[in-house]
Simulated scan of single mutants.
Amino acid sequence: MQNRLNIGCHLSAADGYFHMGEEAIRIDANTFQFFTRNPRGSKAKEINKDDIAALTHLMTINHFAPILAHAPYTLNPCSADPKVRDFALMVMADDFRIMENLPGNYYNFHPGSHVGQGIEIGIDLITDVLNRTLKPELETTILLETMSGKGSEVGSRFEEIQTIISRVEQSDKLGVCMDSCHLYSAGYNVVDDLDSVLDEFDHIVGLKRLKAFHLNDSMTPFASNKDRHEKIGKGTIGLDAIVRILQHPKLKGIPFYLETPNEVEGYQEEIRILRAAVGEI
């Protein structure tokens, strides 16, 4: 069925890409997110061409939205330590290579933490990594994730995201992934004033850059600068506000990816709840 809400969750790639596609269909998802490697950053599993071909066919006949690869959480492209930055560059370059086996999909990463160097230096270091890894022939869209602002994180303000984009030579390869928990924790009131949040993003970055949305409730209050995801409807954002995000006309067609503290069966129930809330069940 086409024109349904594009929603999925985080799935494990341990049993292969096609298995993730099958699992998504089983839980009534039409997209999914995954790690290209262990989330702590170890060596990536080599691509099986037959596995990729099977997934691609499955996605086509089931009208999947783009799938989203997530960089390991340990990457910090704006670390003060050159070895940590070099590791981020190496992993991201290899992940971009892997994703070219799935052209037209998305790769998401956390901009990083400047660890006391300051936002400007952090942004310079992030753009340096992107300028060294992004190539004109790349067919994957690389997404900067909006962050909650904990510690010395870069990317909790729309202005920081836009500055990074503006300094990248291959900026046409870049997009943005919003995160409902991160936005709310960073002081963007998606509960009471979603229209203004989207208008501000459009004015600073441009809604044409918004390619994906992590859908999470929050364990912590508004503007707490914490990154504590909660199950849908169990946190300070609440189910009603999350449904308003799903139904906002400016977000029509955007794929949503659940990152709530769940196993697959929990994701299945959240997808059922959300599809019912928007009238799809």
Rank of each mutant, 00 (worst) to 15 (best):
H229M: 04
F256S: 03
N3I: 01
D50L: 11
L215S: 10
Y184C: 07
N105E: 04
E120A: 15
Q33E: 13
L55H: 12
D199V: 05
L215I: 15
I237Q: 01
E265M: 15
F158H: 05
P77C: 08
H57S: 12
V278F: 04
A13W: 08
T146G: 12
S148R: 09
A54P: 03
I242L: 13
F213Q: 06
G175P: 05
L55I: 05
K49A: 14
K173W: 02
I67R: 06
S79F: 04
K135E: 11
I121P: 02
V197K: 07
V168G: 11
M59L: 11
R244Y: 00
M178E: 00
F256L: 03
Y73K: 12
H10V: 08
I126F: 10
A14H: 08
E280R: 07
A54N: 14
N48I: 10
P111Y: 08
F158E: 05
D192C: 08
G104M: 05
M178K: 03
T236H: 08
I237W: 01
E139S: 13
N189Q: 06
L144E: 11
G122H: 03
K250G: 01
I165R: 06
I204H: 08
Y73H: 12
G122E: 03
S12E: 06
R40V: 07
M147T: 14
L68M: 13
